[in-house]
Design a binder for these strands. Structure first.
Lengths: 212, 212
DNA sequence: ACACAACCTGACCAACCGGTCAACTAGAAT
DNA sequence: ATTCTAGTTGACCGGTTGGTCAGGTTGTGT
């Protein structure tokens, strides 16, 4: 019954262990916060001795930094939906879909991200002042153009973006509250769809989005 | 120049010290999370010796619990706006105003609350299953009635509430991000008003709210 | 077969944290 | 004035934490 453990190549070992550690770390950081997380807890969850963690990640901060950067990249990827779109209905719908999918598939990463920002973004400050700002400015420009072209009402683009972030991220960060109010059960497929549709409908109607 | 320190009555001492400690604790818990906060940090910020903290609050958990319960009560007070209203425009407007005011005046408390929920509400689980659930069910019923009376479109009441919570709380929890994207400066009075107006306008339009 | 480098890990350590306590000071009641 | 109780605090303690390290094991190029 024992799997015939094929010999692993060096590269595979490193990649696999780093992945295992990062997954465990993401979960522990999400559940306990940076201060509450311990290397021992992460090691136990990863099924590795603590000293092994320090072989791959020198310090707790370095491990945390890797986790945060990972989720930040996923977060940014959802951005592309916006660019390809021809109008607010396509663009914002796709963006809501993408961000809701992140909230559903990576709730731990979302929480780590939220926690990082809430504590003043000590690790990500640089990214926020460069990458995030550029991305935001670009999207603001797109929305402004949509408004000029009469494709939607004149809504402040920044506050609209904040609302999109807030409404979608809420389902990850406050998932526990939502679950509690849902009778202690996680949202079903159907409920996730309803959530998505509701956000889309309220916001798209709210900004007076008109077909391109 | 030294203030003529009037003798303090026992009651005043206790009340004043508890208040000082709670304020300091709220800030430290918000900035560092429960795990990252230390009694020493809180004591330093409060200007009291650490042992004195333990005189008023036996354990770190007890102090944390007090902080969380405080903000929970503020949070619940904003609820009353909803009841007095005759229709969605009045009710939801007032609620958004109240919650935005909380985000602005009590950003630390909001963060502690968010952190608490994000980590599975270890302290507040009881409240969430009783008080919060009751409050939510009551509000759902009100919204449902508004829909029946044709005062707004048939939007899922729960998801609408989540959106209200998310959009308003975001300005506290992600305040640092918003500040960074605002050129590193806090939102001005005018920008806060714009934020509030935008949320109101998008949501009220989005749900097709009609005057009672 | 050999040597080198990457990988692994039990044992250990200094620093720190939550919490305790005994001794002290200062209002309040008589 | 005396007594009692609430409030104050420096010093201390056991347990935990992030991090180290010496010595072992295993894949890999020659």
């Amino acid at each position: 019954m024992a799997e015939p453990t094929r010999p692993m190549r060096r590269q595979d070992i490193r990649r696999e262990n780093e992945k295992t550690i990062l997954v465990a770390a993401e979960k522990v950081f999400a559940e306990a916060g940076f201060g509450g997380a311990t290397m021992q807890l992460i090691a136990d969850l990863a099924g590795l001795p603590k000293a092994n963690l320090h072989y791959y990640f020198a310090t707790k901060e370095e491990l945390y930094r890797s986790v945060v950067q990972n989720i930040f990249e996923i977060w940014l990827q959802a951005a592309n939906c916006f660019d390809a779109a021809r109008g607010p209905i396509d663009g914002i719908s796709a963006y809501i879909d993408a961000k809701m999918e992140i909230s559903r598939r990576h709730p731990d990463g979302s929480k780590v991200w939220a926690s990082e920002v809430m504590h003043g973004a000590p690790v990500l400050q640089d990214y926020m002042e460069s990458t995030l700002r550029e991305w935001t400015d670009g999207r603001v420009e797109i929305i402004r153009r949509w408004i000029e072209e009469g494709k939607m009402d004149p809504v402040d683009p920044r506050h609209l973006l904040y609302m999109l972030w807030a409404a979608t991220q809420h389902y990850a960060d406050f998932g526990h509250q939502i679950e509690t109010l849902n009778g202690g059960k996680p949202l079903s497929d159907r409920q996730w769809r309803e959530a998505k549709d509701n956000i889309k409908r309220v916001i798209l109607t709210g900004i007076g989005a008109r077909p391109a």
